[in-house]
């Protein structure tokens, strides 16, 4: 979303000379944040990259990139992140649309519930799923009492549980950018399409969906990137069966005490994330130029 705004601003600032003093003031205002990030993010990150090169340089990278195990974990993490993104997109799209149709007051209530997950710790939210999905959890008690199954279902400690828990945690990151996109859509465009004889499906596919492109790109990138590097959900709900990059990094540090390998994995994860972010930014910039 941030990139969308900066992209749009870029197209508005036609006369760069006039804005130069303001730009300087902006830099000054951002100085505390920049100093903070430099000290607590860039510096430690440089340290991590430095550690990943310890020993004989690049052997750890060679291993991360060529060894089937590490490649497999990256592919597995990406596939989980992709699935979570698709699930959230399918849930968030109608939800965000519904919110745009609400009155101001009702919209505030809706946002309260959408943002509710942010009000509790992620760990607590994730543990709540164990109460619902467990062998003695709510779902199993229900289906056993109804006589639908003989043995309790294995829901917890599976890939399914990780997908469900991640989709829950990540949902607001999808809803908010989508809502921002949809709120800007001129309702008359949809009416016009309808007047010209488009059915509901065509209005959605040829008018609404294309106008939401930047929201979808922003939401999908956020959800994908955050899920790709997530730790808690897979650790708590995966029961050790679902291996993700963050779990592998933790294992390298805690069990094997191999900081070089852990740092190389983290650096590759960072590189993948930056590339994804860059790709999304391109899409959004392209969009901003189209609009102007």
């Amino acid at each position: 979303m941030a990139s969308e705004i900066s992209g749009a601003a870029g197209t508005f600032v036609g006369n760069a000379r006039r804005f130069r003093p303001r730009r300087f003031a902006g830099l000054l205002l951002a100085a505390p944040a920049i100093a903070y990030l430099a000290l607590f993010f860039v510096l430690p990150m440089a340290e991590v990259i430095g550690r990943s090169l310890a020993g004989s340089p690049l052997t750890s990278y060679e291993k991360v990139l060529t060894n089937g195990l590490y490649r497999g974990v990256f592919i597995q993490s990406a596939s989980i992140a992709l699935q979570v993104t698709v699930i959230d997109l399918i849930i968030a799209y109608p939800l965000a649309f519904y919110v745009t149709t609400l009155s101001r007051r009702a919209r505030l209530v809706a946002f309260f519930f959408i943002l509710l997950p942010f009000w509790s710790s992620q760990l607590v939210r994730t543990y709540a799923w164990t109460i619902i999905l467990g062998r003695n959890g709510l779902i199993n008690q229900l289906v056993l009492a109804l006589g639908l199954v003989e043995e309790p279902l294995t829901l917890l400690n599976t890939r399914f549980a990780v997908l469900l828990g991640s989709a829950h945690v990540m949902l607001p990151f999808m809803v908010l950018p989508l809502y921002a996109s949809m709120a800007k859509i001129d309702g008359d465009l949809l009416k016009a399409a309808s007047l010209f004889g488009a059915n509901g499906w065509n209005i959605f596919r040829r008018v609404h969906l294309p106008l939401c492109r930047s929201g979808i790109a922003a939401g999908a990138t956020l959800v994908f990137i955050l899920t790709l590097g997530s730790f808690t959900t897979a650790a708590v709900l995966g029961g050790g069966r679902v291996m993700m990059i963050a779990l592998l990094i933790e294992q390298q540090v805690r069990t094997v005490v191999n900081w070089t390998m852990a740092s190389a994995l983290a650096t590759v994860l960072l590189a993948v994330t930056i590339m994804l972010y860059w790709a999304c930014d391109r899409v959004l910039r392209g969009r901003a130029v189209d609009e102007s």
Partner: peptide, 17 residues
């Protein structure tokens, strides 16, 4: 042997997924 064994363990775990 721990390094080599942990790697094999991870590969084994991954093969089950």
């Amino acid at each position: 042997h721990s390094e080599e064994v942990v790697e094999r363990w991870n590969a084994w775990m991954l093969s089950k997924q």
